[in-house]
């Protein structure tokens, strides 16, 4: 609804018209975490998730689609046995988000370099047989992605404007590079999985704010 209290127009530049009540969180929260701020590079397959290109060339991700996919991913993951979910981040800013997600949900977190054979070789030092693999960025998490494909494991992935959608089975469009954005997405996905499982009431909140999911810049572990 328009009125004097609306923020200046450029504030919402690149943000589709949507009411807070239709989102999992008020849009201000998405905005301040920069979830909608995609890369300048845009792949053809990601066009479906881009709302517009901002004057500075950055692709604005359609937050309505991010929100919708988080709901679907929440349902999907809630039906999987927790320890059969493997969440991966090879990018430092994804380490803590993925670990917090795994702690809450009971999933397995793989952070840092993925050793070959992780899903394909039962004799490898680290070996899992996931039912679903959740990637923070298919580009960076390539080893885990390739092995998932080899083994026929469904792949859920956070995808930015510069990602391809090949061999992704459920895409969650979002800024998958920013420290705050990664924290926010994994926090929201965690909440959604727990709500879908009934571990939280439908409007229940996690005890921690999303800041608790954010990788600290000093002392990464």
């Amino acid at each position: 609804m328009s009125g004097l209290r609306d923020p200046p127009e450029d504030y919402l530049e690149g943000f589709p018209p949507v009411e807070d009540k239709d989102l999992l969180v008020p849009k201000q929260k998405y905005l301040s975490a920069g979830v909608h701020v995609g890369t300048k590079i845009r792949t053809k397959s990601m066009s479906r998730f881009i709302y517009r290109v901002r004057s500075d060339g950055l692709c604005m991700i359609d937050i309505k689609k991010t929100d919708e996919r988080l709901r679907v991913a929440g349902k999907f993951l809630s039906r999987i046995e927790p320890k059969k979910i493997v969440a991966v981040s090879s990018r430092i800013y994804g380490f803590r988000p993925v670990r917090r997600f795994a702690d809450y949900v009971g999933a397995v977190a793989i952070t840092g370099r993925v050793l070959p054979g992780i899903f394909t070789n039962p004799r490898a030092p680290v070996y899992y047989e996931p039912e679903v693999v959740l990637l923070s960025d298919p580009k960076v998490d390539k080893q885990a992605h390739d092995e998932s494909v080899k083994m026929g494991i469904p792949v859920v992935a956070l995808v930015d404007a510069d990602n391809e959608l090949d061999f992704i089975d459920l895409a969650i469009p979002a800024n998958n590079k920013g420290r705050r954005s990664l924290a926010f997405i994994f926090w929201l996905l965690t909440r959604q999985v727990l709500r879908e499982r009934g571990d939280l009431p439908p409007d229940g909140e996690l005890e921690e704010d999303y800041e608790a999911f954010a990788t600290r810049i000093m002392g990464i572990r």
């Binding site: 999907f76 026929g152 469904p154 090949d166 992704i168 089975d169």
Partner: peptide, 27 residues
């Protein structure tokens, strides 16, 4: 074959979704 996948619909959880290698590769 390598590259195919099957999973229950992420949304409703009731319908088996099957994706062949080509459809999966080309999104």
């Amino acid at each position: 074959e390598r590259g195919i996948v099957k999973f229950l619909c992420p949304n409703c959880g009731e319908q088996l979704i099957v994706r062949c290698r080509i459809c999966r590769k080309h999104a």
